[in-house]
Amino acid sequence: MLDVVNLTHTYGTGPNAHRALGGVDLTVAEGELVCVVGPSGCGKSTLLRSIAGLVRPTGGGVRVKGRSVSGTPDDLAVVFQDYSRSLFPWMSVGDNVALPLRRRGLGRAARRTAAAEALSAVGLESAAGKYPWELSGGMQQRVAIARALAYRPSLLLMDEPFGSVDAQTREDLEDLVLAVRGHHRMTIVLITHDIDESVYVGDRVVVLSRAPAVVAADLRVDLPSPRDQIGTRELPAFVHLRAEVGRLVRGKPQLSKAPNGPSSIDKE
């Protein structure tokens, strides 16, 4: 579904240049939910923005469904961390969700129906006529998720999607993402700095090293579905995996100095 091949990115030139990505390789299969974690400032967001076509990578490439892409891939949606800035305050919630559907060639009525369906999938069926700033932070992020769902992307990128909401809302939103992806069969790449979260929602956890980032580890998460906020987090496997990811994020020196390519630690 998604192939990232030896992706590099350097900001600026000369002595002030900052090498954010040092050759990232990543493969995501259709229907997978992959969480990307790493120390703060390691280039997680640069990776996501490169996949989304928002920054042009300095080297390497991105392939979606086997075709290499430059610019923003067609079937892609992004949920940003800062919902208050990614929703448009001059449009109602319904219009915000329906806006991208114009590109899908849907008529007015069809757009409205699709938006209503997506809003009800995130539990906000009555909010279509409201404005984003009339809603709480968690509800605004639900709207942003609904907008992505309505668009029916084959690849959904989420950049720290729950980084700006309180703990209770965060848990609700995590479960929401797990529920909707079951319905919609989407491929999701979710970037987070929260190790617990990455293990809880992910099928796989990809750990990036410090900048210039490379893939330091790629761990398969073998936890039973459906996951449960209390039950799953009690499982010994969860606790073990969380500790493992935590150690990797802190960075064992030999791992972050790994030569090009991932040094994968295979669980099982």
């Binding site: 989304a52 076509g53 928002l54 923003t72 067609d74 892609l76 949606a77 992004v78 940003f80 800062d82 800035r85 990614s86 448009f88 001059w90 449009m91 806006l99 991208p100 114009r102 590109r103 907008r147 668009y151």
Partner: peptide, 28 residues
């Protein structure tokens, strides 16, 4: 706001849509 224009780009809005739906209201 850069996030506004990036959102528009990600969801593939056309130039005309970006102008009338995003840039003009934001600058209004």
């Amino acid at each position: 706001d850069r996030q506004h224009t990036e959102t528009a780009q990600v969801f593939g809005l056309s130039r005309a849509q970006r102008l009338t739906r995003i840039i003009l209201p934001a600058a209004a």
